[in-house]
Design a protein around this nucleic acid. Structure first.
Length: 936
RNA sequence: GCCCAGGUGCUGAAAUUGGUAGACAGGCAUGGUUGAGGGCCAUGUGUCCGCAAGGGCGUGCGGGUUCGAGUCCCGCCCUGGGCACCA
């Protein structure tokens, strides 16, 4: 019987569907296991072979866990809000919902044919109002919460209001901006210029509703604030840093300006410390944890105040991680945008300062941070600050390497101990005081912390490591600074000037935002998906009657960013149809954390950080019982494509074969890999491919063929090297494709896609089918056959446990080859093999299970266990080596003790040949492994 | 510049705790089957010397530790990815 994969796969997919084989419900009698794939965005291009790699791996693992008796939650859904559908809508006028629906249908079709064990009854889509209603709810709860620094958790805003009412800010410490009262809109507040943030209960009570609302806004976890963005007037939108090149938008080349906009912002910074600490509870790779740590960027140091050398009373505040080097400060640098630049600048420096500021404003943040080689630039303000310990006058400069948005936007420069400061000092001939004993600061910078200080007053003779805490204490005593922990992590901007995203449940009355909580706000229809003429977001186009809810003077026109819906979707899968809450507590208590999360490494800092933040918030408020969403995570490597090239002789219609291309001046062009077989071009198909090639002429090689060039690179439409899984499923079947993708190599590694090897895997499945098709109930299984079976069980189980899917396939191949070799025919012997294969080739496994006399489905059969008695051999083979070089093999009984093995080896007839006239110095016998004889 | 990952045959790779380097596949070669092609089957395939037996060399490079190193340590080179001149 031939292996008819089409019939088999079709039959079992229909069967699983009819029996709802993959539907799961909470079952307190079983242990749970949650296997999750990263949320896909349903793009119009459909799946290419790279996408399923992770899905196959997680599917294999989910099935394995099910065989082991776990209640496995393995859901799938779509991150269906997003830019591509909106771009398409802008171009065609087609509503993004329509595009999205079509793309999802295509995705589903492709996923279905691969035989995944998803419980589709739990599917969610972020663009579905029944889903985003709860995204809106979480936003509303963030708005209604503040962060209690003392208790180190998020709390309802009502508790803050109560505290303010009874004792002002005396007894509470909410997370907020450094000088929160400075950004309050001009208005009536019951305090004067000297107010330092110590709000009293009386002052709070004197505030009217509007003023109170403004004050509370400074403490909410979702708050409105001005933030600087890259605004592109022509596109009517905000651009990311990497979408801006040389001050112009990457797409279209329109001019981009820095503009302050009032936006919703989430106070993720309040969670910085916990986001770092809790990493240690996670089973992630060190590199991802490290990337998160770097992103959060905790640094310990001190904030130090430098008085300005005029009579203004102003001070420049800096943050430094090296307060012990303060005696080495010889100048200061402010960001060109720093608020004190104007008052510091002397008349004679005014011109150059202004010019420098203009130049800096033109540079993007990326450029200022100098990718690669950078020139040292800066400008003296003409102003001076006073050294807080020595009282010396210190020149104040501005330079664009200091960013306004980071720290305080100012640094104290210590050229002896900081690379950039040193270069800056050299470039502008500023003094470089020596502060490390034995290091001539003028010669070289010294950034290590192990040499004793000198010329540093009370810190002399101490190494920086010893001096740092002393320095902080000293600064605090002199009241010019204090110990401080700084984080790089900035609060997350949560507003987007887009249509295809979650609308905010917010309306405005007198520019005061109000939550709408009694009714869900859904996306209104609009006549175009572009910003309005005056630059308002697309939602501003909706007329009052277009909204399902209108309150106040106007609705919020921004929508939420793409990461809103994906920050909590793993919770919704647990209770996807709940209309009363985002997820019932008893369900999240049962399913708990995601036990295995599989996806690409590109989400390292975005998605993973935001999900962790939302999870902690939901935990703090008591809605879920765990603090981290993803217990274990594996990042699959990228599958690279193999591109083909043709060589066009410049300025002609002539194409020259790869062998002869050096004889001509050619241009290398990507050619669709579908027109190429084993690097040979189908010339007729090429001419028909595009009109401009219709008259192509070819210079061929000696065999009369046109050979294409090739290269391995990222799979993409523009390189015409995309391989879809569809053709391969058609030719070889889903089981072959599943096994092949696993067989390619370690899951986490990048690897080129090459279909040449697929036939080997297909052959393996055919052999396996043949093996189970030739069973004979009367044949008796031999010991040797049992040994092969149990060896295979052991290897496959061990490898699955450590997610080494590639060697699982090899082990199965070896097992099948050996069983065929020794003519295993007993159906009961072969039956466990069907279970072993079931995770990787589920359709075939069902068929094999029946062929070997199994009943029902293979899906819930208990995973076989490897029996020790079949794993131990009676005899073992020792490689015998002399001075580390293996010379011959020796078979001895497995239980022979090392002393006897040694005697056996030394009396072996070949041994003398290798010893010759040398002396045996030592004999090492590693039981069961190797014998090494040292001679000289 | 910094951080991370990686470097093993013609190719994808294996070697899990320091113990026979190259398992398992692909490709290629030779032979068989076939009207031909495809397919299938068998054998061979790291490299050098040798008819063979056998031996030398061999996991990016240079050192080291060890009876024994792809694996551990030190220094360097190359490739891929990420970044934020982060005070």
């Amino acid at each position: 019987m031939e292996y008819d994969f089409r019939a088999i796969e079709h039959r079992w997919q229909a069967n699983w569907k009819a029996s709802e084989a993959y539907k799961v419900t909470e079952d307190p009698t079983k242990k749970k296991f949650y296997v999750l794939d990263m949320f896909p965005y349903p793009s119009g291009a459909g799946l290419h072979v790279g996408h399923p790699l992770g899905y196959i791996a997680s599917d294999v693992y989910a099935r394995y866990k099910r065989h082991q008796g776990f209640n496995v939650l393995h859901p799938m859904g779509y991150d269906s809000f997003g830019l591509p559908a909106e771009q398409y809508a802008i171009q065609t006028g087609q509503h993004p919902a329509v595009t999205t629906e079509a793309n999802i249908a295509r995705y589903r079709e492709q996923l279905d044919q691969l035989g995944f064990c998803y419980d589709w009854s739990r599917e969610v889509r972020t663009s579905d109002p029944d889903y985003y209603r709860w995204t809106q709810w979480i936003f509303a709860e963030l708005f209604e919460s503040w962060y209690d620094i003392e208790a180190n958790c998020a709390k309802p805003i009502s508790s803050l209001i109560n505290a303010l009412r009874s004792d002002g800010l005396n007894d509470v410490e909410p997370a907020c901006a450094a000088k929160w009262w400075k950004v309050l809109p001009a208005g009536q507040y019951p305090w004067d210029e000297a107010f330092d943030g110590a709000l009293t209960a009386d002052q709070w009570k004197l505030c009217d509703a509007k003023a109170q609302s403004h004050i509370l806004m400074q403490f909410r976890l979702a708050y409105l604030a001005e933030s600087e963005v890259n605004w592109c007037p022509a596109l009517g939108t905000v651009l990311a840093n990497d979408e801006v090149k040389d001050g112009l938008s990457e797409r279209g080349g329109h001019s981009v300006i820095r503009r302050r906009m009032r936006q919703w912002i989430l106070r993720i910074s309040a969670f910085s410390q916990r986001l770092i600490e809790d990493l240690q509870t996670l089973d992630w790779t060190d590199s991802i944890k490290e990337a998160q740590r770097n992103w959060i960027g905790r640094s310990e140091g001190a904030s130090v105040h430098f008085e300005i050398a005029d009579d203004s009373g102003n001070t420049i505040e800096v943050f430094t991680t090296r307060p012990e080097t303060i005696y080495g400060v010889s100048f200061m640098v402010l960001a060109p945008e720093h608020g004190l630049v104007e008052s510091l600048t002397s008349a004679d420096q005014l011109e150059s300062v202004k010019a420098y500021q203009r130049a800096a404003a033109k540079k993007s943040e990326r450029e200022r941070q100098g990718a690669g080689d950078y020139e040292v630039t800066g400008c003296f303000t003409g102003g001076y600050a006073l050294h807080p310990l020595t009282g010396a006058k210190i020149p104040v400069w501005i330079a664009d390497y200091v960013l306004a948005g980071y720290g305080t936007g100012a640094i104290m420069a210590v050229p002896a101990g900081d690379e950039r400061d040193w270069k800056f000092a050299k470039a502008f001939a500023l003094p470089i005081p020596t502060i490390f004993r034995g290091v001539d600061a003028d010669e070289a910078v010294y950034t290590e912390k192990d040499i004793p200080l000198c010329n540093s007053g009370e810190f002399d003779g101490k190494t920086p490591v010893e001096a740092i805490p002393i320095a902080i204490a000293h600064l605090e005593e002199k009241r010019v600074g204090m110990g401080q922990v700084n984080y790089r992590l900035r609060d997350a901007v949560f507003s987007r000037q887009r249509y295809w995203g979650e609308p905010f449940p917010i309306c405005y009355q007198g520019e005061i935002p109000h939550l709408i909580r009694d009714e869900q706000v859904t996306l209104p229809p609009v006549d175009a998906y572009l910003p309005t003429e005056d630059g308002a977001p697309p939602l501003a186009r909706a007329k009052k009657e277009d909204w399902n809810v209108t309150r106040g003077e106007r609705m919020e026109y921004n929508t939420m960013p793409g990461w809103a819906g994906s920050s909590w979707y793993f919770l919704r899968y647990m209770d996807p149809r709940n209309g009363a809450e985002f997820c019932a507590r008893e369900k999240s208590d049962y399913w708990g954390q995601v036990d295995l999360y599989v996806g690409g490494a590109e989400h390292t800092t975005g998605h993973l950080l935001y999900s962790r933040f939302w999870t902690k918030f939901l935990f703090d408020r008591g809605w879920i019982g765990f603090k981290e969403p993803f217990k274990r995570m594996i990042n699959q490597g990228m599958i690279l494509g193999r591109s083909n090239f043709v060589y066009r002789v410049q300025g002609t219609d002539q194409f020259v074969t790869s062998e002869k291309r050096k004889e001509f001046q050619t241009q290398r062009l990507h050619v669709d890999i579908n027109l190429v077989q084993s690097d040979k071009l189908d010339m007729e198909a090429f001419k028909a491919w595009r009109p401009e090639y219709a008259n192509a002429k070819f210079v061929l090689n000696e065999d009369g063929d046109y050979t294409c060039g090739h290269e391995v690179e990222k799979m993409s439409k523009s390189k015409f090297n995309v391989q879809t899984p569809d053709d391969l499923v058609e030719r070889y079947g889903a089981d072959t494709l599943r096994c092949y993708e696993m067989f390619l190599g370690p899951l986490t590694q990048h690897k080129p896609w090459d279909t040449q090897g697929i036939s080997g895997v297909h052959n393996f499945l055919r052999k396996l089918y043949r093996l189970c098709n030739q069973t004979d109930a009367s044949s008796v299984a031999s010991d040797a056959q049992y040994r092969v079976l149990h060896k295979t069980i052991k290897k496959v189980s061990d490898d699955l446990d450590r997610h080494a899917f590639n060697t699982v396939i090899s082990a199965l191949m070896i097992g099948v080859n050996e069983l065929l070799e020794i003519k295993a025919q007993n159906p009961e012997l072969l039956r466990p093999l069907a279970i072993l294969v079931s995770p990787v080739a589920p359709h075939l496994a069902e068929e094999l299970w029946l062929l070997c006399g199994g009943t029902n489905s293979v899906l819930d059969q208990a995973w076989p266990s490897a029996e020790e008695r079949w794993l131990t051999e009676d005899e073992v083979t020792y490689p015998v080596s002399f001075n580390g070089k293996v010379r011959f093999q020796l078979r001895v009984p497995a239980d022979m003790n090392p002393k006897s093995v040694e005697r056996e080896v030394l009396t072996h007839k070949k041994t003398n040949d290798y010893i010759g006239d040398k002396t045996v110095r030592k004999v090492i016998v590693v039981p069961g492994r190797i014998v090494n004889i040292v001679v000289n």
